Amino acid sequence: MLITLTLIALLVAGLVVWTKLKTREIEARYPPAGEMIDVGGYKLHAVHVPRPADADLPALVFIHGASGNLLDQSVPFRPKLEGRAEMLFIDRPGHGWSERGGAANATPDGQANAIAAAMKTKGITSAIIIGHSFGGAIAASFALAHPEMTSGLVFLAPATHSWPGGIAWYYDLTRLPVIGPLFANTLALPAGLTRLESGSACVFAPNPKPDDYITSTAPALVLRPGAFRNNAIDVANLKPYVSRVAPRYSEIRTPTVIITGDSDSVVLAHIHSEGLARDIEGAELVWIRNLGHKPDHVTTDLAVRAIEKVAGYDVDLETAAEMAEASLAADDAGCPS
Rank of each mutant, 00 (worst) to 15 (best):
M1W: 02
L2Q: 12
I3G: 04
I8E: 05
V17D: 13
W18S: 13
K22F: 05
K22V: 07
P31C: 10
P32E: 11
E35P: 04
M36Q: 09
G40S: 05
V47G: 09
V49M: 09
P50H: 02
D54Q: 14
D56S: 03
L60N: 01
A66S: 15
L71D: 02
Q73M: 15
S74N: 01
P79L: 05
K80H: 08
K80N: 08
E82Y: 06
E82F: 01
A85K: 01
A85P: 07
A85M: 05
E86S: 07
M87L: 12
P93N: 10
E99F: 01
E99S: 05
E99Y: 00
P108K: 07
N113Q: 15
I115P: 09
A127Y: 05
G131P: 10
H132F: 09
G135K: 06
A143F: 07
H146N: 15
S151M: 03
T160N: 09
P164G: 12
Y170T: 15
R175T: 13
G180E: 08
G180F: 01
P181E: 00
L187W: 04
A191I: 13
L193P: 03
L193C: 11
L196Y: 04
V203A: 14
V203T: 13
A205G: 12
P206N: 05
N207D: 12
P208M: 06
D211Y: 07
I214P: 03
I214F: 07
I214W: 00
T215V: 08
S216A: 11
P219T: 03
A220N: 02
R224P: 08
N230S: 09
D234T: 05
A236K: 03
K239C: 05
K239F: 00
Y241T: 00
R244C: 03
A246R: 09
A246D: 11
R253A: 14
T254N: 00
P255A: 11
I259R: 02
V266L: 11
A269R: 10
E274T: 03
L276T: 04
A277R: 10
D279C: 11
D279S: 14
E281V: 01
E284R: 15
L285Q: 06
V286C: 10
N290L: 11
V298E: 12
D301Q: 03
L302Y: 00
A303L: 09
A311S: 12
D316P: 00
D316K: 08
D316W: 02
A320W: 02
M323N: 11
A324I: 04
E325P: 10
A329H: 07
A333R: 03
G334V: 05
P336Q: 05
S337M: 11
